[in-house]
Amino acid sequence: MTATTRKNVSRRALLRGTAGAGAAALLAGCGVPAAYVDPKDRAGRDLSARDRVLHFANWPLYIDTDDDTSKRPTLDAFGRRTGISVRYTEEINDNDEFFGKISPALMNHQETGRDLVVISDWMAARFVRLGWVQEMDRKKQPHVAAHLDPLLRAPAFDPGRLHSVPWQSGITGIAYNRRKLGREIRSTKDLWAPDLRGKVTLLSGLDESFALLLQGNGVDVTRWTADDFHDLCEQIEGLVRKKHIRRFTGNDYIKDLSTGDVLACQAYSGDVIQLQADNPDIEFVVPEEGAELWAESLMIPNLAQHKTSAEQLVDYYYEPEVAAELAAWVNYVCPVPAARDVLADSGDEERAALAEDPLIFPDDAMRRRLAIARDITSEERTEFARRWNSIVGL
């Protein structure tokens, strides 16, 4: 069963959590020196050869299942091929919550009981800065080396992708109801047109919102500055006071857009695929000025007891045939472009259509407008989150 025929909650809403809140922001914002782990202290005793088991922690609804959801076909196939039993848990419901769950062990140089985790890009940056994840051995991962999308190979937080490998990716762009609006939206600036007053929503989370809005102002988000951010805040404050922006949302923008209460909004590519199944009038736009490309990353925590097995599982999901199976189920941007040909040649009409969907496999024109934003540093986060949250609360 593919995601085009099922109803999911918003993947991205689950994945991002509330950036800058709770223990995560406090620890990273203060840059607690004792929390940092030196590279020489990150590796544990690797028991992969002896213990044919692996603990993989992921988010709900983020792996392929069969029709009754009792089995996970790609994961089960890995177990049959390798003899490795994967203990798969859907325990990650919020980035900050998960950070709070495993941070005591990591900052105290203790193992977490997990060999592989999937966390959002901004949280992955925090783990890398704190030295809480191990480098992967790319010599053991030929499929990652061969097939990882070039657009995702060098995020600012992890040059060379030494500590992380994208599980799935996506785009933060603009969704709108073309029939009700009566015209196209091509630019982020189009959101500020007078006929959209009170009919626009933005995402409430700082990490979700800022990159696309900066791109709309012509900023290179791979190297944006504090001045760029504060200029943006002044702009959005003015739009809020003029009541141009209806409100700031989590994934409830989906309902607003479906009912017509909102005509245009910031949105995630995977959500729009789901919306279009019921309402073909909903369009998704990568603006002319660009849009944010993001990923949720696979990472191996410090002292993981089955590092070699974890690296093997990561590489398995970069085999184009396996990546195609996963992409057909989750319907986000596939980080393995070669999976497109697998779906196109599958002989299945529905899967062949997915291969042509630019929200799963962006075409060349769209790819040229995508960028991975520089992450917010620990020194910036407290100040920036405070200012952004004050705008959201206006």
Rank of each mutant, 00 (worst) to 15 (best):
residue 42 R to K: 14
residue 301 P to V: 05
residue 333 V to Y: 07
residue 173 G to C: 06
residue 383 E to K: 05
residue 293 L to M: 07
residue 201 T to D: 13
residue 87 R to T: 14
residue 293 L to W: 05
residue 296 E to K: 02
residue 32 V to R: 09
residue 51 D to Y: 11
residue 191 L to Q: 02
residue 171 I to Y: 04
residue 138 R to W: 09
residue 164 S to R: 02
residue 25 A to K: 13
residue 359 L to D: 00
residue 135 E to I: 01
residue 11 R to F: 15
residue 267 A to S: 11
residue 55 H to T: 15
residue 259 T to S: 15
residue 41 D to K: 11
residue 116 L to H: 07
residue 280 P to C: 04
residue 84 I to G: 09
residue 318 Y to M: 04
residue 274 Q to V: 03
residue 244 H to P: 04
residue 148 L to W: 07
residue 234 E to F: 10
residue 26 L to I: 07
residue 231 D to L: 09
residue 35 A to M: 09
residue 287 P to W: 02
residue 317 Y to P: 03
residue 195 D to C: 07
residue 384 F to V: 03
residue 154 A to I: 00
residue 393 G to T: 09
residue 178 R to I: 10
residue 117 V to C: 06
residue 197 R to E: 11
residue 20 G to Y: 10
residue 254 I to M: 09
residue 264 A to K: 00
residue 184 E to P: 01
residue 182 G to S: 08
residue 79 G to K: 07
residue 112 T to V: 13
residue 26 L to Y: 12
residue 21 A to L: 14
residue 252 D to G: 01
residue 60 P to N: 05
residue 197 R to N: 10
residue 88 Y to M: 08
residue 327 A to D: 03
residue 166 P to C: 02
residue 369 R to F: 00
residue 71 K to Y: 10
residue 199 K to R: 14
residue 172 T to N: 12
residue 230 H to C: 00
residue 181 L to F: 02
residue 143 H to A: 15
